[in-house]
Write a protein that binds this DNA or RNA. Structure first.
Lengths: 244, 244
DNA sequence: TAAATAGTGTCTCTAAGACAATATAGA
DNA sequence: TCTATATTGTCTTAGAGACACTATTTA
């Protein structure tokens, strides 16, 4: 806004806008991308599943509201939720996107390591992880938001170090590779992936003292932590075409 | 929003949010990136320069509002403004970003070919193009929005065909190269740039009948139109580091 | 002619793709 | 042992960087 409020503008004169946040919370579980959904306990869309979210409070920024909702829905402590990767995706403003009133929603994508089942707090009837590719039709325009979020995450993996946000503090290169394969839906060559990750300065950092983790059978893998870098130069491009 | 409006929620019970759009309209002029600013005619920030923008009307999407404001501020006809590249950037929601009331603003970046001076319609005291790197402190949080917009445009040039949006319908490769050089603030090798553009399928399309345009002196350059592609594979990376 | 800009060709080098081979664990 | 996973290494190839050289215009 910039051209000034119209002379004599009264904030209460218009039908007010409500502002909400919607969250696409992703995790990688069993080699599939999962998203956190809540079951709606009231109309409209009662009984449908939807992205978690809620109203932005009068003295709150959208990001603060998003972190608050995330903590409520996932049962994470405030400290943990505060450290998660949260990224503003875009804002959905279609005048008819909510049948009750004019609601503008700021959507966020959040990436979390594999977490326990959510407790389903707040006013939702239930909450659980869904395979991101096999959700039924969601409430409101949430199918669109979910698709946009998946696209964005996939694109960001190419040129950022974001994939580590899906991993626990210490992880193997195999786990990191599985993040890429799961989000992109492709298979990558392991030696080449390894070379790319290790030759990108600051992407990952070896855990000293060579601790190793067993992944069942096979040779134990070395552990790494996320490095200091945030961007990838050059990017780690998907095998085929891209989006957006 | 998804967890349902609180029981008995009254849209008028809270202090309402206002929703606005802010536009970072860029063009390349004289080898410098320029942005369209308007001078504020009323408090707050009276006399300061700001990004053009305005309120989203009750039955309007944010993008519709942005195109309407763009047409008003630039004096473009509705048809022309409707075809311009307009990209939602992000939404700014700090509770104190406007001293008058709670205003949430959806920011857009627009790319236009070099245009005549704007007529400064609407309620702005004046409107003109500014060198994007030499604006004074702007009103509200518009310095931040402008910086974010510049970053985003620069990043998108790498992996999209967006640069043609800065060019007229028919353009030379030299003009296209200057878009990259201006937005990125670097110099590119002409033969290499040419090779990259011409070997990327669908980036540009030669204008048949070999019409040519004189750029003063020197050999006339061949003309091209924007091609059908929207993404660049592989991307056209900046010489040095990246952002975001 | 000189200067300016457009366009071509070529050599080099980086990094990605393909994939063979080796290492170390559990069954 | 066999199987599974991790790790190393090597050959090939696509594409970017550097830059010499040619072409076509105006002054």
């Amino acid at each position: 806004m910039s051209t000034g409020v119209p002379e004599g503008y009264d904030p209460y004169a218009f039908e007010p806008f409500a502002v909400t946040v919607d969250l696409a919370v992703f995790t990688v579980r069993d080699g599939r991308l999962h998203v956190l959904l809540v079951e709606r306990g009231a109309d409209p869309y009662k009984g449908h599943w939807a992205l978690p979210g809620g109203f932005v409070l009068p003295r709150e920024s959208a990001e603060t509201a998003a972190r608050r909702e995330l903590a409520e829905e996932t049962g994470l402590t405030g400290g943990t939720a505060g450290a998660l990767h949260l990224e503003q995706l875009r804002t959905y403003t279609d005048p008819d996107r909510d049948p009750r009133m004019r609601v503008v929603s700021v959507a966020y994508a959040a990436l979390v390591p594999d977490l326990p089942e959510p407790r389903g707090g707040g006013d939702a009837a239930g909450a659980r992880w869904w395979d991101a590719g096999r959700t039924g039709p969601l409430a409101f325009d949430h199918d669109r938001i979910l698709a946009d979020a998946h696209d964005r995450i996939g694109a960001k993996l190419e040129y950022s170090c974001l994939a580590t946000a899906f991993c626990p503090p210490e992880f193997t290169l195999g786990e990191l590779q599985q993040v890429y394969e799961t989000v992109w839906g492709v298979e990558l060559d392991r030696p080449n992936f390894r070379r790319k990750v290790l030759t990108t300065p600051g992407f990952v950092q070896a855990v000293e003292g060579s601790p190793r983790r067993t992944g069942g059978r096979g040779k134990p893998a070395a552990l790494y932590r996320a490095g200091a870098a945030t961007a990838l130069h050059p990017p780690l491009l998907r095998p085929e075409g891209r989006s957006t």
